[in-house]
Every structure is written in structure tokens, then in C-alpha cells.
């Protein structure tokens, strides 16, 4: 484990990514206690405030403290994105590896169908699912998870097939190992690494998709502190203060960059042969 961490922190991507994601996770876990103000505390006299000593990141159109709202929103935005990615990956991995395991006609049928679903842009698919279920954070989560499944299924299948062809799996079959052992001990450890890498990078897409849904009014609803929603609301007050627009945008971008970097770092660190 320490060896793995050392390898992760050795690459610039792994180091930067771990740092950013670590900070974000601290904000997610401790955010509530770190906020100087309540996310909904309005101060009529301090509207559109520029960054200052009292309000590090300034205040918004109702005089709410932006830093407090961002920290508060970290929980909903990042946790939702993580959950959505995890569910989507799990579903996709089960579908993909299952398809690879079945092989033959069943595999072809499943994968062609998955390809077909991939013809619908994932944002559109998420929009459809949300409109079917109704606009809310929970439904947006489900929508993103569903939108991720086809591509994750494709990726897990190709990884599983590549591992399946390896000689160590052949050796296990020739030895007469049961399929449980082959799947759990021979294949899974080798399949999981690339999927974890892909999943980490996906979290950044989930953050962005999530924010986009909120922006389009189909995710979190006001007065939630979801970052995408904050950007959407800020657009109307652009000419009064650009800070209210800039900070949530930066938060989204930073989170996405962090998970992107971490994913690239993990790719190197999880390779057993380097």
C-alpha cells in the first residue's frame, strides 16, 4: 500500500491529482464545519461583494457568502458525481464482463445493443431519463449512472477479453481451476486496475454532466448549493459581479482537473510491470 502510494505520488499527474482530490474530499467531509457562514444566510447590505477579509470569495446576489456555499455544495456535487460514477461503472462492468464471459451470439447481441444505445449522446440520454423521472438531484444521479453504463460496459468487456486471452488464465483452465477462482483471483485483479483508472477519469465527466443538468434546470433545484446551479443563477447578475460566476466555474473545473490528473497518475501506478 505504501509502495503503491509512493508510485502514485512519484508522477507529477499523480501528485497534483492526489493533492487536488484530497483537498476536495476534505471540503466534502469537513465542509460543513469549515464554513464561516451558513449557505443560506443572507446579508442584504453585502450583496455582490468582491473578495474581502470577511468574505474570502465575495458574496452573491442575496449577500450569501460564496465560499460557504461552495463548501456546502461540494458535498452534493462531488458525492453525487462519485455515486453516479460508481453505480454506472458497476452496472457497466457487470454487463461488460458478463457479456465477455457468455461469449458467442449472446456477447454479440449485448454489445451491438450497447453500441446502439451509445448512439444517443450521453447528455441527451441523461436528459431523457431525468425528464422521465422528474427533475431532482437523485434522479440526475440515476440518469448519469445510466448514461455511463454503455461506455463502461464496452471498456470492461474489452479489458476482460484481453485478460481472458492471457496465458495465466489458460494455465488456470488447463490446471482445472473452477470458474469462481479464475474470475476472482486470476482475472479480477487484472481487470479492476484499468477499470478503476477509467472510473476516476469518469468522475470528472460526472461532475460536469451533473453541473450541466443543474444548469439546464433538470438537476438540483434552487436554493440548493449545487455548483452548476450556482453558475446558472449567476448568469443573470453577470454585469453586477463576475465573482459569483467565476468561483463555482473554477470549482467545477478544478474538481474535474483533479480527477483527470489522478486517473492518469493511477494508470502508471497500477501497472504492475513498471
Amino acid at each position: 500500500m505504501t509502495d503503491f502510494l509512493r508510485r502514485l505520488l512519484r508522477t507529477p499527474q499523480g501528485f497534483l491529482g492526489s493533492l487536488i482530490v484530497g483537498l476536495i474530499l476534505i471540503a466534502v467531509v469537513l465542509g460543513q464545519w469549515l464554513t464561516p457562514y451558513g449557505p443560506a444566510d443572507m446579508q442584504a447590505l453585502a450583496r455582490y461583494g468582491a473578495p474581502s477579509v470577511e468574505h474570502w470569495l465575495g458574496t452573491d446576489q442575496y449577500g450569501r457568502d460564496i465560499l460557504s456555499r461552495l463548501l456546502n455544495g461540494a458535498r452534493s456535487t462531488v458525492v453525487m458525481a462519485l455515486l453516479a460514477t460508481f453505480i454506472g461503472t458497476l452496472g457497466g462492468a457487470v454487463l461488460g464482463t458478463g457479456s465477455a464471459y457468455l461469449g458467442g451470439r449472446a456477447d454479440e447481441f449485448i454489445m451491438r445493443t450497447v453500441d446502439a444505445v451509445m448512439a444517443i449522446p450521453s447528455l441527451l440520454l441523461a436528459l431523457l431519463v431525468v425528464s422521465l423521472l422528474g427533475s431532482s438531484s437523485a434522479n440526475a444521479l440515476l440518469a448519469i449512472a445510466i448514461a455511463f453504463m454503455p461506455s463502461m460496459a464496452r471498456i470492461s468487456r474489452s479489458v476482460a477479453l484481453a485478460v481472458r486471452k492471457q496465458d495465466y488464465v489458460s494455465a488456470a483452465i488447463a490446471r482445472g481451476e473452477g470458474s469462481t477462482y479464475i474470475i476472482l483471483r486470476e482475472m479480477l485483479p487484472n481487470v479492476i486496475a484499468p477499470i478503476v483508472v477509467e472510473m476516476t477519469i469518469r468522475v470528472s465527466f460526472a461532475v460536469m454532466l451533473f453541473a450541466t443538468l443543474s444548469f439546464l434546470g433538470l438537476g438540483a433545484q434552487p436554493p440548493a448549493t449545487d455548483w452548476g446551479l450556482m453558475v446558472s443563477e449567476a448568469r443573470q447578475y453577470l454585469h453586477r459581479s463576475y465573482w459569483i460566476l467565476l468561483w463555482p466555474s473554477a470549482a467545477i473545473a478544478l474538481t474535474a482537473i483533479g480527477f483527470n490528473l489522478l486517473g492518469d497518475g493511477l494508470r502508471d501506478a497500477l501497472n504492475p510491470r513498471t
Binding site: 492471457q166 496465458d167 495465466y168 489458460s170 494455465a171 488456470a172 488447463a174 490446471r175 482445472g176 481451476e177 483471483r185 486470476e186 485483479p189 487484472n190 504492475p272 510491470r273
Partner: peptide
């Protein structure tokens, strides 16, 4: 099981035939 035990195969590339994520102890314990 008897046939599997009696007939063993060794492959060309040990790089590919030994699982990179298993220690020698696990590989040989099987």
C-alpha cells in the same frame, strides 16, 4: 481432476503465464 493433475502444460512466455498480480507463493500454492 485426475487428468488435469496428470497432464500439465508450460507456456512459451513466462511473462504471460504467471499472473503479474500474484506472488510466487500463491502461484505455486495452487
Amino acid at each position: 481432476r485426475d487428468y488435469r493433475r496428470d497432464v500439465q502444460i508450460i507456456f512459451q512466455h513466462p511473462d504471460a503465464s504467471l499472473n503479474p498480480r500474484q506472488k510466487i507463493s500463491e502461484i505455486l500454492a495452487r
